[in-house]
Simulated assay, not measured.
Amino acid sequence: MVYLFMQASVKDFDKWQRVLIDFMPILKRMGSTNTSVYQEIGSPNNVTVIHEFTSKVKAEAFVNSNELHDSRKEAEVIGTPKIWYTEML
């Protein structure tokens, strides 16, 4: 299993979360098997999202997709998220 971490700041967490909820069917279609969301304590507009994929190829395709880039704009993500890939040992 590959874990895709995305850390970002958002203008408004509630709006961002609504966009994420609407985006979930597309995320699943693109191969994500699970998603979890975390807020920074004391800074609720700083979020970290972990998406699980069966391969790095699928995770990278998701990161580079037009759908994701369009949803970031709609969700008012500030700047470019920090992204990294891991796998459980």
Rank of each mutant, 00 (worst) to 15 (best):
N34W: 06
M30C: 05
M6D: 01
V10Q: 00
D70G: 12
S55K: 15
S65A: 08
K11E: 12
V57L: 15
E74Q: 11
H69C: 06
T33D: 14
K58D: 14
H69A: 08
H69S: 08
L89R: 11
M6G: 05
G31L: 05
K15Q: 12
K58C: 07
W16Y: 11
E60K: 13
P44H: 09
V63F: 06
Y3Q: 09
V49I: 15
G42N: 12
K15V: 09
I50T: 03
K11W: 07
P25D: 10
W84M: 05
R29Q: 13
S36L: 15
F5K: 03
V63R: 05
S55H: 14
T54G: 15
H51V: 04
K28I: 10
I78F: 09
E60F: 08
S36P: 01
M6Y: 07
I26E: 11
Y3G: 03
G31M: 07
A8V: 03
L68T: 01
Q17I: 04
M1S: 15
D12Q: 08
I78M: 10
M24H: 05
L4A: 04
A61Y: 04
F62Q: 00
V19K: 03
F62C: 01
L68K: 03
W16D: 00
N45H: 06
Y85G: 02
V63H: 04
Q17F: 06
G42F: 11
G42T: 12
I78D: 07
K15I: 09
A75L: 02
V49A: 14
S65G: 10
Q7S: 15
E40L: 12
E52D: 11
F23T: 04
D70V: 11
E60T: 08
L4G: 00
M24I: 06
Y85K: 07
T33W: 13
E76R: 06
T33P: 10
Y3M: 10
S9C: 08
K28E: 14
S55G: 11
S71M: 08
Q39S: 11
L68E: 02
S55C: 13
L27K: 02
Y38M: 12
S43C: 13
G31Y: 04
L89Q: 11
K11I: 04
E67Q: 08
V2S: 04
M30S: 05
Y38I: 08
T48P: 02
A75M: 02
S9D: 08
V2E: 01
I83K: 01
K15F: 06
N66T: 13
Q7P: 03
Q17K: 12
N46P: 01
S43R: 12
V37L: 14
F23A: 13
L68N: 02
